[in-house]
Design a protein around this nucleic acid. Structure first.
Lengths: 197, 197
DNA sequence: CGCCTCGATGTCAGTCGCTGTCATCCCTAC
DNA sequence: GTAGGGATGACAGCGACTGACATCGAGGCG
Protein backbone atom coordinates (compact mmCIF):
# COMPACT_ATOMS: atom_id res chain seq x y z
CA UNK A 1 0.00 0.00 0.00
CA UNK A 2 1.41 3.29 -1.05
CA UNK A 3 1.64 6.33 1.12
CA UNK A 4 -0.62 8.23 -1.22
CA UNK A 5 -3.41 7.22 -3.52
CA UNK A 6 -2.04 6.26 -6.92
CA UNK A 7 -2.94 7.99 -10.17
CA UNK A 8 -2.42 11.47 -8.82
CA UNK A 9 -2.23 13.10 -12.24
CA UNK A 10 -5.46 11.46 -13.36
CA UNK A 11 -7.31 12.46 -10.21
CA UNK A 12 -6.14 16.03 -10.65
CA UNK A 13 -7.26 15.95 -14.25
CA UNK A 14 -10.75 14.73 -13.42
CA UNK A 15 -11.13 17.23 -10.61
CA UNK A 16 -9.94 20.05 -12.85
CA UNK A 17 -12.39 19.23 -15.63
CA UNK A 18 -15.18 19.06 -13.10
CA UNK A 19 -14.33 22.42 -11.57
CA UNK A 20 -13.71 24.09 -14.91
CA UNK A 21 -17.10 22.91 -16.08
CA UNK A 22 -18.98 24.24 -13.09
CA UNK A 23 -17.05 27.40 -12.12
CA UNK A 24 -15.22 28.14 -15.33
CA UNK A 25 -11.51 27.97 -16.06
CA UNK A 26 -10.49 31.42 -14.86
CA UNK A 27 -12.51 31.31 -11.70
CA UNK A 28 -10.90 28.05 -10.65
CA UNK A 29 -7.52 28.31 -8.95
CA UNK A 30 -4.85 25.66 -9.03
CA UNK A 31 -5.09 25.50 -5.25
CA UNK A 32 -8.79 24.66 -5.45
CA UNK A 33 -8.14 21.82 -7.87
CA UNK A 34 -5.38 20.39 -5.73
CA UNK A 35 -7.24 20.66 -2.44
CA UNK A 36 -10.37 19.12 -3.93
CA UNK A 37 -8.39 15.87 -4.13
CA UNK A 38 -6.51 16.37 -0.90
CA UNK A 39 -3.26 17.70 -2.32
CA UNK A 40 -1.44 21.01 -2.32
CA UNK A 41 -0.94 23.53 -5.10
CA UNK A 42 2.74 22.66 -5.23
CA UNK A 43 1.93 19.08 -6.07
CA UNK A 44 -0.42 20.18 -8.84
CA UNK A 45 2.43 22.03 -10.52
CA UNK A 46 4.71 19.06 -10.13
CA UNK A 47 2.37 17.04 -12.31
CA UNK A 48 1.36 19.77 -14.74
CA UNK A 49 3.72 22.46 -15.89
CA UNK A 50 0.91 24.99 -15.97
CA UNK A 51 -2.75 25.26 -15.19
CA UNK A 52 -3.90 24.81 -18.79
CA UNK A 53 -1.84 21.71 -19.29
CA UNK A 54 -4.11 19.65 -17.04
CA UNK A 55 -6.66 19.62 -19.86
CA UNK A 56 -4.18 18.27 -22.37
CA UNK A 57 -2.95 15.23 -20.53
CA UNK A 58 -2.54 12.33 -22.93
CA UNK A 59 -1.61 14.47 -25.89
CA UNK A 60 1.55 12.45 -26.36
CA UNK A 61 -0.55 9.41 -27.00
CA UNK A 62 -2.33 11.21 -29.83
CA UNK A 63 0.96 12.20 -31.37
CA UNK A 64 2.16 8.63 -31.19
CA UNK A 65 -1.00 7.46 -32.91
CA UNK A 66 -0.42 9.88 -35.74
CA UNK A 67 3.14 8.67 -36.13
CA UNK A 68 2.03 5.05 -36.01
CA UNK A 69 -0.30 5.83 -38.90
CA UNK A 70 2.58 7.31 -40.84
CA UNK A 71 4.61 4.17 -40.28
CA UNK A 72 1.81 1.95 -41.47
CA UNK A 73 1.50 3.72 -44.80
CA UNK A 74 3.00 1.80 -47.74
CA UNK A 75 6.51 2.89 -48.71
CA UNK A 76 5.42 4.28 -52.06
CA UNK A 77 2.55 6.33 -50.70
CA UNK A 78 2.48 10.01 -51.62
CA UNK A 79 2.69 12.56 -48.78
CA UNK A 80 -1.06 13.15 -48.74
CA UNK A 81 -1.70 9.42 -48.73
CA UNK A 82 0.63 9.04 -45.78
CA UNK A 83 -1.21 11.80 -43.99
CA UNK A 84 -4.52 10.11 -44.76
CA UNK A 85 -3.19 6.97 -43.11
CA UNK A 86 -2.12 8.97 -40.06
CA UNK A 87 -5.55 10.54 -39.93
CA UNK A 88 -7.18 7.15 -39.93
CA UNK A 89 -4.91 5.89 -37.21
CA UNK A 90 -5.44 8.92 -35.00
CA UNK A 91 -9.17 8.85 -35.52
CA UNK A 92 -9.43 5.33 -34.22
CA UNK A 93 -8.49 6.56 -30.77
CA UNK A 94 -11.70 8.48 -30.51
CA UNK A 95 -14.26 5.81 -29.97
CA UNK A 96 -17.92 6.46 -29.45
CA UNK A 97 -17.60 6.04 -25.69
CA UNK A 98 -15.13 8.88 -25.59
CA UNK A 99 -17.45 11.34 -27.25
CA UNK A 100 -19.26 12.60 -24.13
CA UNK A 101 -15.97 13.24 -22.41
CA UNK A 102 -14.56 14.93 -25.48
CA UNK A 103 -17.62 17.10 -25.65
CA UNK A 104 -17.48 18.43 -22.12
CA UNK A 105 -13.75 18.97 -22.40
CA UNK A 106 -14.15 20.83 -25.66
CA UNK A 107 -16.90 22.96 -24.18
CA UNK A 108 -14.47 24.17 -21.54
CA UNK A 109 -11.82 24.93 -24.14
CA UNK A 110 -14.27 26.77 -26.35
CA UNK A 111 -15.11 29.08 -23.46
CA UNK A 112 -11.59 30.28 -22.89
CA UNK A 113 -9.16 31.93 -25.34
CA UNK A 114 -6.10 30.88 -23.37
CA UNK A 115 -7.17 27.26 -23.67
CA UNK A 116 -7.85 27.63 -27.37
CA UNK A 117 -4.38 28.99 -27.72
CA UNK A 118 -2.95 25.95 -26.03
CA UNK A 119 -5.08 23.67 -28.17
CA UNK A 120 -3.76 25.23 -31.35
CA UNK A 121 -0.29 24.87 -30.00
CA UNK A 122 -0.83 21.18 -29.41
CA UNK A 123 -2.15 20.71 -32.92
CA UNK A 124 0.89 22.53 -34.23
CA UNK A 125 3.18 20.19 -32.35
CA UNK A 126 1.42 17.25 -33.95
CA UNK A 127 2.04 18.82 -37.32
CA UNK A 128 5.70 19.26 -36.47
CA UNK A 129 5.99 15.63 -35.46
CA UNK A 130 4.30 14.43 -38.64
CA UNK A 131 6.52 16.72 -40.69
CA UNK A 132 9.53 15.05 -39.15
CA UNK A 133 8.17 11.60 -39.89
CA UNK A 134 7.53 12.55 -43.50
CA UNK A 135 11.01 13.99 -43.85
CA UNK A 136 12.38 10.74 -42.47
CA UNK A 137 10.58 9.01 -45.35
CA UNK A 138 12.48 11.17 -47.78
CA UNK A 139 9.82 13.79 -48.46
CA UNK A 140 11.30 17.21 -49.04
CA UNK A 141 10.73 19.92 -46.49
CA UNK A 142 8.10 21.96 -48.27
CA UNK A 143 5.95 19.00 -49.19
CA UNK A 144 6.33 17.47 -45.76
CA UNK A 145 5.33 20.65 -43.96
CA UNK A 146 2.39 21.29 -46.27
CA UNK A 147 1.07 17.75 -46.06
CA UNK A 148 1.45 17.54 -42.29
CA UNK A 149 -0.05 20.92 -41.62
CA UNK A 150 -2.93 20.21 -43.97
CA UNK A 151 -3.53 16.87 -42.32
CA UNK A 152 -3.78 18.47 -38.91
CA UNK A 153 -6.21 21.04 -40.27
CA UNK A 154 -8.38 18.28 -41.65
CA UNK A 155 -8.20 16.48 -38.33
CA UNK A 156 -9.23 19.57 -36.38
CA UNK A 157 -12.18 20.29 -38.65
CA UNK A 158 -13.29 16.67 -38.60
CA UNK A 159 -12.99 16.58 -34.84
CA UNK A 160 -15.20 19.63 -34.45
CA UNK A 161 -17.83 17.97 -36.58
CA UNK A 162 -17.51 14.68 -34.76
CA UNK A 163 -18.23 16.46 -31.48
CA UNK A 164 -21.48 17.90 -32.80
CA UNK A 165 -24.59 16.57 -31.15
CA UNK A 166 -26.27 15.54 -34.40
CA UNK A 167 -23.25 13.83 -35.90
CA UNK A 168 -23.37 10.06 -35.74
CA UNK A 169 -20.55 8.90 -37.98
CA UNK A 170 -17.12 7.83 -36.81
CA UNK A 171 -14.32 10.36 -36.72
CA UNK A 172 -12.43 8.37 -39.34
CA UNK A 173 -15.34 8.61 -41.74
CA UNK A 174 -15.73 12.32 -41.20
CA UNK A 175 -12.02 12.93 -41.61
CA UNK A 176 -12.01 11.02 -44.89
CA UNK A 177 -14.87 13.18 -46.10
CA UNK A 178 -13.19 16.39 -45.09
CA UNK A 179 -10.01 15.35 -46.81
CA UNK A 180 -11.98 14.47 -49.88
CA UNK A 181 -13.61 17.89 -49.84
CA UNK A 182 -10.18 19.49 -49.68
CA UNK A 183 -9.05 17.53 -52.73
CA UNK A 184 -12.16 18.66 -54.56
CA UNK A 185 -11.53 22.28 -53.69
CA UNK A 186 -7.92 22.22 -54.80
CA UNK A 187 -8.76 20.33 -57.96
CA UNK A 188 -11.29 23.02 -58.87
CA UNK A 189 -8.68 25.72 -58.44
CA UNK A 190 -6.14 23.71 -60.39
CA UNK A 191 -8.51 23.29 -63.32
CA UNK A 192 -9.61 26.89 -63.53
CA UNK A 193 -6.13 27.97 -64.52
CA UNK A 194 -6.76 31.35 -62.99
CA UNK A 195 -4.21 31.21 -60.21
CA UNK A 196 -1.21 33.57 -60.22
CA UNK A 197 2.01 32.19 -61.79
CA UNK B 1 1.42 70.22 -26.98
CA UNK B 2 0.27 67.15 -25.19
CA UNK B 3 0.98 66.36 -21.60
CA UNK B 4 2.82 63.20 -22.61
CA UNK B 5 4.77 62.13 -25.62
CA UNK B 6 2.43 60.75 -28.26
CA UNK B 7 2.67 57.25 -29.68
CA UNK B 8 2.97 55.55 -26.33
CA UNK B 9 2.02 52.12 -27.66
CA UNK B 10 4.60 52.31 -30.43
CA UNK B 11 7.35 53.42 -28.09
CA UNK B 12 6.54 50.55 -25.78
CA UNK B 13 6.60 48.16 -28.70
CA UNK B 14 10.01 49.29 -29.88
CA UNK B 15 11.45 49.17 -26.39
CA UNK B 16 10.02 45.71 -25.83
CA UNK B 17 11.48 44.29 -29.03
CA UNK B 18 14.84 45.79 -28.15
CA UNK B 19 14.83 44.33 -24.65
CA UNK B 20 13.50 40.96 -25.77
CA UNK B 21 16.28 40.77 -28.33
CA UNK B 22 19.04 41.51 -25.87
CA UNK B 23 17.84 39.95 -22.62
CA UNK B 24 15.30 37.47 -23.89
CA UNK B 25 11.53 37.47 -23.45
CA UNK B 26 11.30 35.76 -20.09
CA UNK B 27 14.09 37.68 -18.50
CA UNK B 28 12.48 40.99 -19.39
CA UNK B 29 9.77 42.22 -17.04
CA UNK B 30 6.89 44.43 -18.04
CA UNK B 31 8.15 46.98 -15.54
CA UNK B 32 11.51 47.13 -17.29
CA UNK B 33 9.89 47.76 -20.64
CA UNK B 34 7.70 50.51 -19.27
CA UNK B 35 10.42 52.24 -17.30
CA UNK B 36 12.80 52.14 -20.24
CA UNK B 37 10.50 54.66 -21.91
CA UNK B 38 9.64 56.55 -18.74
CA UNK B 39 6.31 54.92 -17.97
CA UNK B 40 4.96 52.58 -15.31
CA UNK B 41 4.03 48.94 -15.50
CA UNK B 42 0.36 49.85 -15.12
CA UNK B 43 0.47 51.96 -18.25
CA UNK B 44 2.06 49.11 -20.17
CA UNK B 45 -0.90 46.89 -19.35
CA UNK B 46 -3.32 49.63 -20.33
CA UNK B 47 -1.93 49.50 -23.85
CA UNK B 48 -1.31 45.77 -24.11
CA UNK B 49 -3.57 43.23 -22.52
CA UNK B 50 -0.62 41.01 -21.75
CA UNK B 51 3.13 40.95 -22.10
CA UNK B 52 3.15 38.85 -25.25
CA UNK B 53 0.69 41.08 -27.02
CA UNK B 54 3.24 43.87 -27.40
CA UNK B 55 4.90 41.83 -30.14
CA UNK B 56 1.68 41.46 -32.10
CA UNK B 57 0.67 45.07 -32.39
CA UNK B 58 -0.67 45.78 -35.87
CA UNK B 59 -2.15 42.33 -36.33
CA UNK B 60 -5.51 43.89 -37.11
CA UNK B 61 -4.00 45.54 -40.13
CA UNK B 62 -2.89 42.16 -41.45
CA UNK B 63 -6.36 40.74 -40.98
CA UNK B 64 -7.85 43.69 -42.85
CA UNK B 65 -5.41 43.15 -45.70
CA UNK B 66 -6.49 39.54 -45.98
CA UNK B 67 -10.13 40.56 -46.05
CA UNK B 68 -9.44 43.26 -48.63
CA UNK B 69 -7.93 40.59 -50.83
CA UNK B 70 -11.05 38.49 -50.44
CA UNK B 71 -13.17 41.43 -51.51
CA UNK B 72 -11.06 42.05 -54.57
CA UNK B 73 -11.51 38.52 -55.87
CA UNK B 74 -13.95 38.22 -58.78
CA UNK B 75 -17.47 37.14 -57.81
CA UNK B 76 -17.21 33.80 -59.56
CA UNK B 77 -13.86 32.85 -58.07
CA UNK B 78 -13.67 29.48 -56.37
CA UNK B 79 -12.80 29.40 -52.64
CA UNK B 80 -9.15 28.59 -53.26
CA UNK B 81 -8.94 31.34 -55.85
CA UNK B 82 -10.38 33.79 -53.36
CA UNK B 83 -7.83 32.67 -50.82
CA UNK B 84 -5.07 33.10 -53.39
CA UNK B 85 -6.22 36.68 -53.87
CA UNK B 86 -6.18 37.25 -50.12
CA UNK B 87 -2.70 35.79 -49.97
CA UNK B 88 -1.51 38.19 -52.63
CA UNK B 89 -3.06 41.13 -50.87
CA UNK B 90 -1.61 40.22 -47.48
CA UNK B 91 1.80 39.55 -48.95
CA UNK B 92 2.02 43.04 -50.37
CA UNK B 93 2.20 44.43 -46.86
CA UNK B 94 5.57 42.81 -46.33
CA UNK B 95 7.85 44.92 -48.42
CA UNK B 96 11.57 44.40 -48.64
CA UNK B 97 12.24 47.20 -46.16
CA UNK B 98 10.22 45.37 -43.54
CA UNK B 99 12.24 42.21 -43.79
CA UNK B 100 14.97 43.07 -41.29
CA UNK B 101 12.39 44.05 -38.72
CA UNK B 102 10.35 40.93 -39.41
CA UNK B 103 13.47 38.86 -38.98
CA UNK B 104 14.46 40.18 -35.58
CA UNK B 105 10.88 39.95 -34.38
CA UNK B 106 10.57 36.39 -35.60
CA UNK B 107 13.85 35.48 -33.96
CA UNK B 108 12.39 36.51 -30.62
CA UNK B 109 9.22 34.52 -31.22
CA UNK B 110 11.15 31.44 -32.31
CA UNK B 111 13.01 31.49 -29.01
CA UNK B 112 9.93 31.29 -26.82
CA UNK B 113 7.14 28.71 -26.80
CA UNK B 114 4.65 31.09 -25.22
CA UNK B 115 5.17 33.51 -28.06
CA UNK B 116 4.84 30.77 -30.66
CA UNK B 117 1.58 29.87 -29.05
CA UNK B 118 0.36 33.42 -29.37
CA UNK B 119 1.52 33.54 -32.99
CA UNK B 120 -0.44 30.43 -33.87
CA UNK B 121 -3.43 31.95 -32.16
CA UNK B 122 -3.14 35.07 -34.28
CA UNK B 123 -2.90 33.01 -37.45
CA UNK B 124 -5.97 31.11 -36.34
CA UNK B 125 -7.89 34.33 -35.90
CA UNK B 126 -6.97 35.33 -39.43
CA UNK B 127 -8.34 32.02 -40.64
CA UNK B 128 -11.53 32.62 -38.72
CA UNK B 129 -11.93 36.05 -40.28
CA UNK B 130 -11.33 34.72 -43.78
CA UNK B 131 -13.76 31.90 -43.14
CA UNK B 132 -16.40 34.48 -42.29
CA UNK B 133 -15.67 36.45 -45.43
CA UNK B 134 -15.97 33.34 -47.55
CA UNK B 135 -19.23 32.39 -45.89
CA UNK B 136 -20.51 35.87 -46.67
CA UNK B 137 -19.77 35.13 -50.31
CA UNK B 138 -22.02 32.12 -50.13
CA UNK B 139 -19.40 29.44 -49.64
CA UNK B 140 -20.61 26.63 -47.41
CA UNK B 141 -19.07 26.18 -44.01
CA UNK B 142 -16.83 23.21 -44.69
CA UNK B 143 -15.35 24.62 -47.86
CA UNK B 144 -14.92 28.04 -46.31
CA UNK B 145 -13.13 26.69 -43.25
CA UNK B 146 -10.90 24.41 -45.29
CA UNK B 147 -9.96 27.07 -47.80
CA UNK B 148 -9.29 29.71 -45.15
CA UNK B 149 -7.30 27.43 -42.90
CA UNK B 150 -5.29 26.14 -45.84
CA UNK B 151 -4.61 29.68 -46.99
CA UNK B 152 -3.24 30.66 -43.61
CA UNK B 153 -1.04 27.58 -43.58
CA UNK B 154 0.35 28.54 -46.96
CA UNK B 155 0.92 32.06 -45.72
CA UNK B 156 2.77 30.90 -42.62
CA UNK B 157 5.03 28.58 -44.58
CA UNK B 158 5.72 31.22 -47.19
CA UNK B 159 6.48 33.74 -44.49
CA UNK B 160 9.10 31.60 -42.81
CA UNK B 161 10.75 31.10 -46.18
CA UNK B 162 10.59 34.80 -46.95
CA UNK B 163 12.38 35.49 -43.68
CA UNK B 164 15.27 33.23 -44.57
CA UNK B 165 18.55 34.99 -45.14
CA UNK B 166 19.14 33.50 -48.57
CA UNK B 167 15.66 34.12 -49.90
CA UNK B 168 15.43 37.04 -52.28
CA UNK B 169 11.98 36.76 -53.84
CA UNK B 170 8.91 38.66 -52.73
CA UNK B 171 6.55 37.09 -50.25
CA UNK B 172 3.79 37.10 -52.88
CA UNK B 173 5.94 35.05 -55.24
CA UNK B 174 6.87 32.57 -52.56
CA UNK B 175 3.27 32.23 -51.42
CA UNK B 176 2.14 31.54 -54.97
CA UNK B 177 4.78 28.83 -55.23
CA UNK B 178 3.79 27.24 -51.96
CA UNK B 179 0.15 27.23 -52.97
CA UNK B 180 1.11 25.68 -56.29
CA UNK B 181 3.03 22.97 -54.48
CA UNK B 182 -0.03 22.23 -52.37
CA UNK B 183 -2.16 21.86 -55.49
CA UNK B 184 0.42 19.51 -56.93
CA UNK B 185 0.44 17.39 -53.78
CA UNK B 186 -3.31 17.10 -53.62
CA UNK B 187 -3.59 16.38 -57.31
CA UNK B 188 -1.13 13.51 -56.93
CA UNK B 189 -3.24 12.03 -54.14
CA UNK B 190 -6.40 12.55 -56.13
CA UNK B 191 -5.02 10.73 -59.15
CA UNK B 192 -3.63 7.77 -57.26
CA UNK B 193 -7.11 6.68 -56.30
CA UNK B 194 -5.75 5.05 -53.20
CA UNK B 195 -7.40 7.19 -50.59
CA UNK B 196 -10.02 5.72 -48.24
CA UNK B 197 -13.65 5.99 -49.36
C1' DC C 1 -10.29 84.62 -17.18
C1' DG C 2 -11.72 80.85 -14.37
C1' DC C 3 -14.11 76.58 -14.04
C1' DC C 4 -15.10 71.79 -15.58
C1' DT C 5 -14.78 67.78 -17.93
C1' DC C 6 -12.04 64.31 -20.06
C1' DG C 7 -8.38 61.31 -21.06
C1' DA C 8 -3.94 59.39 -20.13
C1' DT C 9 -1.02 58.39 -16.47
C1' DG C 10 0.59 57.33 -11.59
C1' DT C 11 0.03 54.94 -7.11
C1' DC C 12 -1.07 51.19 -4.36
C1' DA C 13 -2.82 47.04 -2.73
C1' DG C 14 -3.97 42.57 -3.81
C1' DT C 15 -4.71 37.93 -6.29
C1' DC C 16 -2.92 34.23 -8.74
C1' DG C 17 0.28 31.51 -11.52
C1' DC C 18 4.43 29.48 -10.93
C1' DT C 19 9.28 28.31 -8.90
C1' DG C 20 13.21 27.19 -5.74
C1' DT C 21 14.40 25.16 -1.54
C1' DC C 22 14.26 22.39 2.24
C1' DA C 23 11.94 19.21 5.32
C1' DT C 24 9.14 15.07 5.84
C1' DC C 25 8.01 10.38 5.55
C1' DC C 26 6.73 5.85 3.73
C1' DC C 27 8.36 2.18 0.82
C1' DT C 28 11.98 -0.67 -0.91
C1' DA C 29 16.41 -2.81 -1.19
C1' DC C 30 20.22 -4.55 0.95
C1' DG D 1 17.43 -2.05 10.69
C1' DT D 2 19.33 1.05 8.06
C1' DA D 3 20.18 3.70 3.85
C1' DG D 4 18.29 5.50 0.00
C1' DG D 5 14.70 7.33 -3.15
C1' DG D 6 10.41 9.14 -4.68
C1' DA D 7 6.44 11.77 -3.84
C1' DT D 8 4.59 15.23 -1.04
C1' DG D 9 4.21 19.36 2.21
C1' DA D 10 5.59 23.93 3.87
C1' DC D 11 7.17 28.34 2.89
C1' DA D 12 9.07 32.28 0.82
C1' DG D 13 9.24 34.97 -3.20
C1' DC D 14 8.84 36.86 -8.05
C1' DG D 15 6.33 38.55 -11.78
C1' DA D 16 2.00 38.97 -14.52
C1' DC D 17 -2.12 41.18 -14.23
C1' DT D 18 -6.30 43.85 -12.09
C1' DG D 19 -9.30 47.13 -9.60
C1' DA D 20 -9.79 51.45 -7.32
C1' DC D 21 -8.63 55.93 -6.64
C1' DA D 22 -5.73 60.11 -7.20
C1' DT D 23 -3.42 63.37 -10.31
C1' DC D 24 -2.94 66.76 -13.75
C1' DG D 25 -2.65 69.09 -18.16
C1' DA D 26 -5.52 70.16 -22.45
C1' DG D 27 -9.36 72.03 -24.32
C1' DG D 28 -14.22 73.59 -24.09
C1' DC D 29 -17.46 76.83 -22.19
C1' DG D 30 -19.55 80.56 -19.75
Amino acid sequence: MARWEPGTAERLQRAALELFTTRGFERTTATEIAESVGLTERTFFRHYSDKREVLFHGQDELVRTFLAGVDEAPPDASPIEVVAAALGSASSVFTDERRPHSRTRQAVIDENPALQERERHKLASIATAVTGALRARGVDELAATLAAETGVTVFAIAFTRWIREDEQRSLADIAADVLHELLTLTAAAQDSGRLPR
